[in-house]
Design a protein around this nucleic acid. Structure first.
Lengths: 173, 173
DNA sequence: CGGTATTTTCAGGAAATTCTGAAATAGATG
DNA sequence: CATCTATTTCAGAATTTCCTGAAAATACCG
């Protein structure tokens, strides 16, 4: 391998390793983040065995996390003709990646939180004590805020990128 | 305790428990989320011992997580005159809470990610192969996107709430 | 000071999460 | 349908994260 190619490989490995660390801080597991980093910077789709080899992980681990990334919409499965194996390819467009992550996090985190808040709000709607009123009010404010955030997220991710950029520029202006 | 007061206590406990579960999914630990929920819905500041009793947790656990929440800016320490103990009080304004969380997450998660991306970008800036160029380009796009997001976050959280609402309404329009 | 109340730290244990490796299943091919 | 290849599942091991309880440190008070 040439000097330059080694250099690139080293930096890429660093990126993969660090992205894994970031992942754990973001609340997703290290391997999943590393596979994502690996495929984001891959020139072409990789097979499960190639991922196993590149990251030195077991088949079960590679399989589970590849499928999880497919569920998140961050990878897609591609097939090569004459090949029976599945290959995995990352969504590389950053804006599209962001949309997918937003949507998935909303579904997994925001929506359940909203359910809890709505329920707690309703269960205390009729109570008359000052404590109960304060609690009910707090639930209402949290719910309003989160449902507002959810709507904004939906709206932003269903808009063409350039529209969002225009609006954002106004905000930054 | 009256029927209504029991009802309120039950709902509040449910809120605290569920908020704890949400916390784990959001990547923060269960106890920290529960303490936050407890204090968000407390009528007045609580001492460490009261938090321990309310959640049935050890002193070490209560202490560590209370201090961590203070670091996040989600709780403040208050003292009562004639009392030597510290009491903890939650920031209850939802918008302010959001600002604090945004700021802290940016500092802990976004900024380190940006450093990694910048380094990987710089280390491959001079390389000529098609692979290296693609890698460099991917790093650049990720960096641009995240630094843009960071700026937006900063901007939004340093604006008065009503300004943000106005802009948001336009976006939702 | 000496005594007491409170906060802080941290070693070791408990719990939760993640990973491995191998067995089971599914799918293709001749 | 026998065989080969690839995918999926999952019990138990490894690792990481979290919590307890007690000891150490700190702050206050007479």
């Amino acid at each position: 391998m040439s000097k330059a190619a080694t250099e690139l490989a080293k930096t890429r490995d660093e990126f993969i390793a660090q992205w894994g660390v970031m992942g754990t801080q973001w609340g997703i597991n290290r391997t999943m983040a590393q596979i994502h980093a690996l495929l984001m910077t891959a020139v072409e789709p990789l097979s499960t065995d190639e991922v196993m080899a590149a990251l030195d992980i077991s088949r079960g681990n590679a399989h589970t996390n590849l499928k999880e990334l497919v569920n998140w919409g961050l990878l897609r499965i591609v097939t090569k003709k004459g090949e029976r194996r599945e290959f995995f390819e990352a969504e590389k467009d950053v804006w599209e990646m962001f949309r997918r992550i937003m949507g998935e996090r909303k579904r997994r985190e925001l929506d359940p939180a909203l359910n809890v808040l709505t329920r707690c709000k309703e269960e205390t709607a009729g109570l008359k004590s000052a404590e109960a009123k304060a609690f009910h009010q707090q639930m209402t404010e949290l719910e309003d805020f989160l449902s507002f955030a959810a709507k904004m997220g939906d709206r932003a991710s269903s808009m063409p990128q350039n529209k969002v950029m225009q609006l954002a520029m106004k905000l930054l202006g």
